[in-house]
Amino acid sequence: MSGFSIFDKTSSLHSIYVTLMVNRIQMLYFVIILPVFLIYPYMIWVIILVGFLSQMSIFLLSKWFNSIYASKGYEGFAELLGERSVRVLAFIGLGLILLKITVITLGYVEITQHFIFPSLNTNWMILFILLICWYVGSLGMAPTIRFVVIAFLSTAWMVLLLVNFLFQPSNTIHDLFPLVPFDWTIESWKGVLFIFSALSGPEYLVLLAPWFNTRKKILKYMTIGNAFTIFEYLFLFIASLFFFGPHYLKEIRFPMMEVMRYMESPVFERIDMILISFYLINFVFAISIFILLFYGASRITLKKSKEQTTKSGFAFCCSIVFICLFINNELFWKEATNQNILLELEIWAGALTYILIPLFLFTSLKRKGRV
């Protein structure tokens, strides 16, 4: 099949795209189940504190964006770390990227089946989503990055629909107590880990540096995206506390979706079905980006990074992703215990990559005297 420039870098995108990407990548499957993992009202302060920790990681990432290596892409990584080390890291990255694709895809599919298509085989939904992502990704990295604008405009406004739930007559300020933990348990530590993992994702943007105008206040734009995410998490968590109360919240499987089911409209009977459908746009954007990164990491691992990209090669990578999703869906995700294992793995993997990748790149730049 004829070659095509899927990783074309002729255009330099404005840094505002970084803001939108940081925010939308942080607002995936974890935000939907976040209240279940937090439960306790004092986690409001934990969200804020972990948000500052997330900002530290973003600060370290900005050092990479402003380095002389960032705009060189693969060549920059090879110059800084060595080609063999880059290949090893790319091989490890394949597993991490595949795990993230698996959790966010199967998570969204489960929600869709639960609220919209209870009798539909989830494998068909997986195939449908991946076909869309294959099309979006095949347009190239630059158009896929630009797609974040559509993803943001299609989903960011949803948080405003919950404003009404903050001012219900049944709400009481006691639902937000205690704001100070009297007994810090292992579940509290898991909540901290979950929040930090939920905020992960921006670390993968270092791989997209050649497509951005990286030297124009990149830290400012990344900070805005991270701050907006923290605001959304706080808003959604407080709204769920008011709606369910801290004691009943832990019994709900998908709190945010259940809240949306209570929304009323003179036109549409099931607003939640419309919102879930709209939210697919954000998942398509994120999955498309990760599939492109998976394809790029595969080429680096196989020493084909300097060869022309091909449609057949990209389609083959998408096929591998689908097979892995199909296997995980049949053998793991449908079983609650095994599903929790995959979720736990992604929680730990997301937290570790978000703290280790920025720290590793910053340390490498420091050794080279480029910071």
Results as ranks from 00 to 15, higher is better:
residue 297 A to I: 02
residue 254 F to D: 00
residue 25 I to K: 01
residue 266 P to L: 05
residue 84 R to G: 01
residue 356 L to K: 07
residue 283 F to C: 02
residue 143 P to A: 11
residue 45 W to V: 08
residue 70 A to W: 00
residue 341 I to H: 09
residue 143 P to I: 08
residue 134 W to C: 11
residue 148 V to A: 12
residue 164 N to T: 11
residue 219 L to T: 07
residue 61 L to F: 10
residue 330 E to V: 08
residue 136 V to N: 02
residue 51 G to K: 15
residue 353 T to C: 12
residue 93 G to S: 06
residue 250 K to I: 09
residue 129 I to Y: 06
residue 222 M to S: 13
residue 323 I to R: 08
residue 200 S to V: 09
residue 338 N to F: 15
residue 22 V to F: 13
residue 350 G to T: 07
residue 141 M to P: 00
residue 10 T to F: 14
residue 201 G to M: 02
residue 199 L to K: 02
residue 194 F to K: 06
residue 143 P to M: 12
residue 145 I to T: 04
residue 84 R to K: 14
residue 332 F to E: 00
residue 118 P to V: 13
residue 213 N to M: 10
residue 276 I to C: 05
residue 93 G to H: 01
residue 229 T to Y: 05
residue 258 E to G: 08
residue 214 T to S: 14
residue 120 L to T: 13
residue 1 M to S: 13
residue 243 F to T: 06
residue 231 F to E: 04
residue 68 I to K: 13
residue 292 L to S: 00
residue 53 L to E: 08
residue 21 M to E: 03
residue 308 Q to M: 12
residue 60 L to T: 00
residue 66 N to G: 09
residue 171 N to P: 05
residue 300 I to W: 00
residue 13 L to Q: 12
residue 104 I to P: 04
residue 283 F to H: 11
residue 199 L to P: 02
residue 257 M to E: 08
residue 175 D to N: 15
residue 74 Y to G: 03
residue 263 M to R: 14
residue 337 T to I: 12
residue 273 M to K: 10
residue 309 T to L: 03
residue 181 P to W: 04
residue 100 K to P: 00
residue 50 V to F: 11
residue 93 G to T: 01
residue 312 S to H: 11
residue 285 F to H: 07
residue 292 L to M: 10
residue 295 Y to E: 02
residue 322 F to I: 13
residue 125 M to Q: 10
residue 277 S to Y: 09
residue 319 S to F: 15
residue 107 G to S: 13
residue 362 F to D: 00
residue 12 S to G: 12
residue 371 V to G: 02
residue 81 L to N: 01
residue 63 K to E: 07
residue 351 A to T: 07
residue 251 E to H: 15
residue 280 L to K: 10
residue 198 A to R: 03
residue 269 E to G: 09
residue 52 F to C: 14
